[in-house]
């Protein structure tokens, strides 16, 4: 009787064979744990600084023309968004592996049946969740301030037209169109998406470097340098490699592309601020490039990390 009760059921597989090679739920657990870890590092204090910057930029330059006031608000806010995204992407990713080694959390995780690739993807996903959440909150703050400022600026402009006896329907319509072009549009959220995609690529690059780097400082400095070169890749191609022979130009461009990603592809924010509207195809192209880099760098990072002696 007892023997029957304790004997394993023939339909139930033993625990070892239930192990799946890749488990999204394990990755998700690691990602949420990473978010908690980063939040405890008080990284999100930047959000408060951002809110203060946006409010200040929205109300500190009242002497300029309405269009320029709104452009300046967007310039400052998107500048802060980009700095937040890139700095957090580099610093938080660079900190993750050394911190886990220091806390010995890494050994606890990897002693369980967790493949190293899941650990890497979980960590990267955690950083991306944090950056995505932060950008979402900042986008909401920016949208609210911009909408408020847009209405105030438009009221002031119409009042000014009335004061000058020029408030014809034609003039009011032109003023409204000019302010609306610089005001809150859906394209601004596409700009935030572009910043997120760029940050994802930089995070993946930082993760790759941190897999073979001996110190956190090395990872941070190297990734910053590569990010700067990555932003200037188009300029290097057009101004420096242009004089080379066709083969030389191709070889130099390829060498540069191997060393660092072309981050200039994601710089659509500048034109969005001016009022340009990206199409769905534009966003798809950028997403494809981001995926290409992220998948590529994570795969390389895995090959380095899987052999790393911990």
């Amino acid at each position: 009787m007892n023997g029957e009760a304790t004997a394993p059921s023939p339909t139930r597989p033993p625990a070892a064979s239930r192990f799946v090679a890749f488990s999204p739920s394990r990755v998700w657990t690691l990602a949420t744990a990473t978010v908690t870890q980063l939040v405890r590092m008080k990284i999100l204090v930047f959000l408060l600084v951002f809110a203060a910057v946006v409010v200040a930029a929205g109300f500190v330059f009242p002497v300029m023309n309405p269009e320029q006031q709104l452009k300046l608000l967007k310039d400052v806010s998107f500048g802060a968004l980009q700095i937040f995204a890139i700095v957090i992407a580099i610093v938080s990713t660079a900190l993750l592996l050394p911190r886990d080694l220091e806390d010995r959390t890494l050994y606890t995780i990897l002693s369980k049946p967790v493949p190293r690739v899941e650990y890497l993807i979980g960590k990267l996903l955690g950083v991306l969740l944090l950056i995505g959440g932060g950008l979402f909150v900042m986008d909401a703050v920016l949208s609210a301030v911009l909408w408020m400022r847009q209405n105030m600026v438009l009221d002031a402009a119409i009042h000014s037209l009335e004061h000058e006896n020029k408030a014809t329907p034609e003039n009011i319509a032109a003023q409204t169109a000019a302010v609306a072009k610089q005001g809150l549009t859906w394209a601004l959220h596409a700009g935030v998406l572009a910043i997120f995609l760029k940050a994802a690529v930089v995070s993946a690059l930082a993760l790759l470097i941190s897999c073979f780097a001996s110190t956190t400082l090395f990872t941070i400095v190297t990734t910053f340098c590569l990010a700067i070169v990555g932003h200037g890749q188009q300029m290097l191609r057009e101004y420096f490699f242009h004089g080379f022979s066709a083969v030389g130009e191709k070889a130099a461009s390829s060498a540069l592309a191997i060393i660092c990603p072309d981050l200039g592809v994601f710089d659509i924010v500048e034109n969005i601020i001016k009022g340009a509207q990206p199409s769905g195809a534009d966003l798809l192209h950028m997403t494809f490039m981001a995926l290409l880099y992220v998948v590529g760098y994570v795969a390389v990072a895995h090959l380095v990390f899987v052999e790393k002696e911990l």
């Binding site: 200037g232 592809v265 710089d267 659509i268 195809a281 534009d282 494809f288």
Partner: peptide
């Protein structure tokens, strides 16, 4: 992608 984004007016020259 750079060429496509420049053509659609979303990306400026360096």
């Amino acid at each position: 992608v750079t060429l496509s984004l420049r053509t659609s007016g979303m990306l400026s020259r360096p």
